[in-house]
Nucleic acid binder design. Sequence first.
DNA 1: GCAGGTATTCAACGCTTGTTGAAATTTGAC
DNA 2: GTCAAATTTCAACAAGCGTTGAATACCTGC
Lengths: 222, 222
Amino acid sequence: MEDGDLRTQQREDRRTRILDAAEELFARHGYDAVTLRAIARLAEVDVALANYHFGPKRDLFDAVLMRRAKILNDMRLRELDETMRAAAPGRPTVDGIIRAYLHPLLNAPHIHEAGWKNYYALVAYVNNSPEWGGKLMTQFFDPLVGRFVEAFRAALPGAGDAELFWSYHCLSGALTLTFAQTGRIDKLSQGLCRSDDLEAAYEHIVAFTAGGYINACGGLAE
Amino acid sequence: MEDGDLRTQQREDRRTRILDAAEELFARHGYDAVTLRAIARLAEVDVALANYHFGPKRDLFDAVLMRRAKILNDMRLRELDETMRAAAPGRPTVDGIIRAYLHPLLNAPHIHEAGWKNYYALVAYVNNSPEWGGKLMTQFFDPLVGRFVEAFRAALPGAGDAELFWSYHCLSGALTLTFAQTGRIDKLSQGLCRSDDLEAAYEHIVAFTAGGYINACGGLAE
DNA sequence: GCAGGTATTCAACGCTTGTTGAAATTTGAC
DNA sequence: GTCAAATTTCAACAAGCGTTGAATACCTGC
């Protein structure tokens, strides 16, 4: 087999251009607002090619989500393991677990890549949609989230199950809205805070959600 | 003038049926996925009637959002005034301000009305969309939010402006995701927590975000 | 350099969309 | 009872949709 180079390279290049274009448009306008023709135009590709590579529109949407979810989840798990190992045999800190969950979002290589920004906005869209949220988020993220909930339980021995799940839910809402970079906080603060200042957002979310977990899950117990 | 009753009544009835149907479908599927024909079918009304009463599709969307935003904002302001008055001349508590912001969402008359549930999901959709979020949320909610940020500032004299805005942003994300009732937490917790248990959600969000504010805004200062 | 398979383009399909202008219906005022 | 105004229906428009099947280009292995 061992495909040649130039041919395969153009094929891959076009596949990723289609995914990039779809990601950008889905993130900006939602699933139904985006036409395959618009995606093809942005990717500078024939309209039938998207269907050839990814099947019908709905499957393309899944492919877009899947691509970066895998990368992100792997990074998160690695940071979580690190945190847990460093803390053992003692308890991990809430702050440390939250950082393991959030820090991969602004990992140096991709913090200002447009693709990742679009992906974050897309996840916010999916997460908050009754149509997609209950299904796709579960499919793509719940195994990972289960691991983090366990870590929080270890950090907060006084917490009940319900508190742990609701607290994660609050974390998820704050996180997805912030990284969607909708521009709202820019207007609300009249320019003082900037949506695209992810490092600042990161520190604020960590501080806010750590306080939230400790207050809602009886952090000082035992 | 003084219109008769039966005629005006049917007119109003049809107008609200159109708004209700639009609200439900926009909330479930987003703006572009919904056709005026689907709205008309659900409202049991001719397709041209929506256009007659509300103008083009985009204006109908605004009308849907506006209808309940006014009611909600009035209730919130009233509860905030109450909280501030009760605390004066001392400082208000973070917990009290948060409750003034959240409690109207589950006011007895409408906690289980389908219309309000749909509206909350719609606000989550708008809030998290880069396309709508920066503009519509500002238009409908920012005057109100400004009042609440002021209240938080009074409650947390040590806090800087940026901390106050970012903290509100986290509150907003947790709030809109939770009240959108996407069903995600039901699956994540395997049935232990229920999306439609708004009273439980309310208490958890209050505890979480109050801890968040205090931790992120240097609550114990002075 | 030819056969075979993969990648890409092209043209077309049936269908649905938001909007509109004219017609029809209903109602209250005189 | 008639007129005019407001509301509701109807039919039609041009435009755009996702998808498909046949045709074309391209490269690889022989």
